[in-house]
């Protein structure tokens, strides 16, 4: 496959996944606003969301204070924010248009329809109580795209680069979301006051129900960390995402007669640490430390993949 095609597919999937992740984050913040808003802690939640999205510096260059409206505008409409929902769809659609021939009609139409809808979206459509509907629309559009990819793409290299992009972006997102709440998730955290944050952490990866199914116990920060990082059953856990990343990279290598590079080794190493690592060891290292390292490794893996398959 053309290297540029692989690059576009990889980024197309990353941007689509990112849009949905931002929407998930916003839904949680909106909900938290209703719960803790009255207690005066509202800005905290929105600030955490900004940190998780990685665009804090950019935000402060344009906006003076962290208000819900400003954060929503920044994370939805502002095209100066490369991780904003509109910007993500724009970038995803641009990549898709560039490599149309590598997509199936269903994938293209799901993205193109979303883009056509978004580009005529009035700013009022995300104001106040309309926000949750909009956010669930975004999530459903990305699920439609992911479903179209899973249901219609030939299981060849094109599919693998799409899947690789989705999974790497998802791993990065889970690590970041877990990290912004590392205080509340540390073993010393006080259950009574942090309970809503635990719920929020789980909701942000769509895992609140999953928690109950896996543990059948009350919420507990150690188990939440276990679920988000080490449990292969949860499709958004770090280990699950890395399992997919590793398998997908292997699939590409096998398809090319066994050609492998540093990206394959690194993916194997990261996966092994997650697959065979102990929860206690994570807390010994420090949750924040561990997650910062994971975020760094994920970024490095991304550039190793690019240097092997795209710039190679």
């Amino acid at each position: 496959m053309l290297s540029r095609t692989a690059e576009c597919l990889f980024w197309l999937a990353r941007y689509a996944e990112r849009a949905a992740n931002v929407a998930r984050g916003l839904s949680v913040a909106y909900r938290m606003d209703g719960i803790v808003g009255q207690a005066g802690g509202e800005a905290e939640e929105w600030r955490a969301l900004l940190t998780a999205s990685g665009g804090e510096a950019g935000f402060h260059r344009k906006y003076e204070t962290v208000t819900p409206d400003a954060v929503v505008h920044w994370l939805v409409h502002d095209t100066d924010n490369p991780s904003g929902i509109l910007a993500c769809f724009e970038a995803a659609r641009h990549n898709a248009r560039t490599v149309r021939t590598a997509l199936t009609v269903d994938m293209w139409e799901s993205l193109n329809d979303s883009w056509n809808h978004l580009r005529t979206l009035p700013p009022e459509a995300t104001e106040g109580e309309k926000l949750p509907d909009f956010l669930s629309w975004v999530r459903s559009r990305v699920m439609l795209f992911n479903g179209a990819a899973a249901d219609t793409m030939l299981r060849q290299e094109a599919w693998r680069f799409v899947h690789l992009g989705t999974m790497l972006e998802r791993a990065d997102n889970t690590a970041r979301l877990c990290d912004v709440r590392h205080h509340q998730l540390s073993p010393a955290a006080d259950g009574a006051s942090e309970y809503v944050h635990w719920q929020a952490a789980l909701r942000s990866v769509s895992a609140l129900r999953a928690y109950h199914w896996v543990y059948r116990e009350r919420l507990d920060p150690k188990r939440i960390v276990d679920l988000m990082i080490l449990r292969p059953e949860l499709p958004r856990s770090l280990v699950a995402c890395y399992g997919e990343v590793l398998e997908t990279l292997e699939g590409i290598a096998v398809g090319q007669g066994g050609r492998r590079g540093e990206c394959h080794r690194l993916a194997g190493e990261i996966h092994a640490r997650l697959r065979y690592g102990r929860l206690d060891a994570i807390f010994e290292q420090g949750l924040h430390d561990f997650l910062t390292e994971m975020i760094g490794l994920t970024a490095r893996l991304g550039s190793e993949i690019e240097s092997f398959y795209i710039r190679g």
């Binding site: 496959m1 290299e157 680069f161």
Partner: peptide, 15 residues
Amino acid sequence: DLFVQEKVVYMRTTA
């Protein structure tokens, strides 16, 4: 996506 080496045209692919 294309380059020329010793007067032969190649395209850059993942393989």
